[in-house]
Nucleic acid binder design. Structure first.
Lengths: 232, 232
DNA sequence: TTAGACAAAGTGGTCAGACGTCTGATTAGT
DNA sequence: ACTAATCAGACGTCTGACCACTTTGTCTAA
């Protein structure tokens, strides 16, 4: 039943919030059918205008896809937008420095938490990525993609969606920055070794090792990019 | 005149496009008044529903700011979107926990860096915000806004634009989460004291104090929200 | 004269119902 | 068996009304 919404302001916002909750609670997947407008009207006890406005909010967030005559469905990649923070604003050199500094702040702690919270599935996923590294040809583009995947997978181990969503944004922005940077001899090999060390630490539940190895890895990355990070 | 729109689909999108053009053509600045709904109805020759939906599109892009009873105005920072990471697409309780955990990871270090890098202008800005706190009435909405401003201003002290852009996203998402949460007695007072301590530490260049005070502040915030953060 | 109470107008928020158009499935006719 | 008409369901748009909030101006009383 409807659980009457008393306040008479921002009803669409509240309705949109509950719609998101419904999606999460029912574990709806991309492509799944969404309740029709008339169903939502009787579910929420608000008018069609309000429901429609709430739906439009979800559309703006790329959470649902409305198709005229058919119905509404969960979007393919709910909530995903590119360069969401609008980071391509300042000069590349400073941006790269800022990005690496940010990684130096959050990633060691992410690795620490990952060690404590990783599920068996998480660890398996990490192992696959590390294996991909080893057998991978020396293609720079692919290497960076897998590198981002690795760090994102570590973030996923924390079971913290905020970190898990934020980290790829940082990594991909760095990728953009590197795009015009020289590849340092041996950097890929050093990165691979670091990743193996981090993976082993997570697998064997050694949080302090994971943290320090991650810190070392990022400092090494900065060094390869001819940048220096301080202020720890 | 109205230039009759023949197609009967996506009228709001078309109207929104023309509204954007109007803003650009007339060189409208942030704060400028926007035509009222009834004016737009006669300008475009479409119904109020359509106009309203078009306006909501502009709101989603943070181009205009609609104020009930007053009117519609050009937004302060047109185009800077809210919730860019799509964090609302998640379980509220868990999201709040994740957000606070993220703050616990980055903010103490932000305060540390702020202490080392803050300019005199940064410190002045912080001081103004702290003063605003003291003389502020007990209005919850205003309090939260100034709270976000304070933490964002601290992030600005780091001279790291990535942190400076990321932190408000986190803070505002927490604000959203609190929207339907009970206000804890005395939490505002405790927050004010913490902010003063942090400000003093930054002003007097005491990085360790700034870090520990920030950590304490966030843990207190979590406690007020009846959440426990661990894993340090 | 002035401070406060009050009424009116303007604005956005919500509701209710109606009709149009598109889509997909069903059904009638060949 | 195939085609075309029909139907039901879904979203798109329109209309008109009423509600809530803000501003403004007027009026009254001190």
């Amino acid at each position: 039943m409807n659980e009457l919404i008393s306040v008479q302001r921002e009803l669409p916002r509240i309705a949109a919030k509950r719609l998101r909750e419904i999606i999460v609670d029912n574990n709806m997947q991309p492509g799944d059918r969404f309740p029709s407008e008339s169903e939502l009207i009787s579910m929420f006890g608000v008018s069609r205008s309000t429901i429609r406005e709430a739906m439009k909010l979800l559309v703006a967030e790329n959470i649902v896809d409305i198709q005229r005559g058919k119905g509404t469905f969960i979007a393919a990649q709910p909530g995903v937008v590119k360069d969401p923070l609008g980071l391509h604003f300042s000069d590349q050199q400073k941006l790269l420095q800022n990005l690496l500094e940010t990684r130096l702040i959050i990633e060691p702690q992410i690795a620490y938490l990952a060690t404590q919270r990783a599920t068996q599935e998480n660890i398996k996923a990490l192992e696959h990525i590390v294996q991909d590294f080893k057998v991978m040809p020396d293609l720079r583009a692919q290497h960076i993609t897998v590198d981002i995947n690795f760090h994102t997978a570590v973030a996923q181990c924390t079971q913290n969606d905020v970190l898990h969503r934020f980290l790829p944004v940082i990594c991909e922005s760095i990728h953009e920055g590197y795009y015009e940077t020289v590849t340092i001899e041996g950097s890929q090999q050093r990165a691979l070794e670091c990743h193996i060390n981090i993976f082993e630490a997570i697998k064997n539940r050694l949080p302090e090792i994971a943290r320090s190895e991650t810190e070392k890895h990022i400092l090494q990355t900065a060094k390869d990019a001819k940048l220096t990070l301080g202020g720890k």
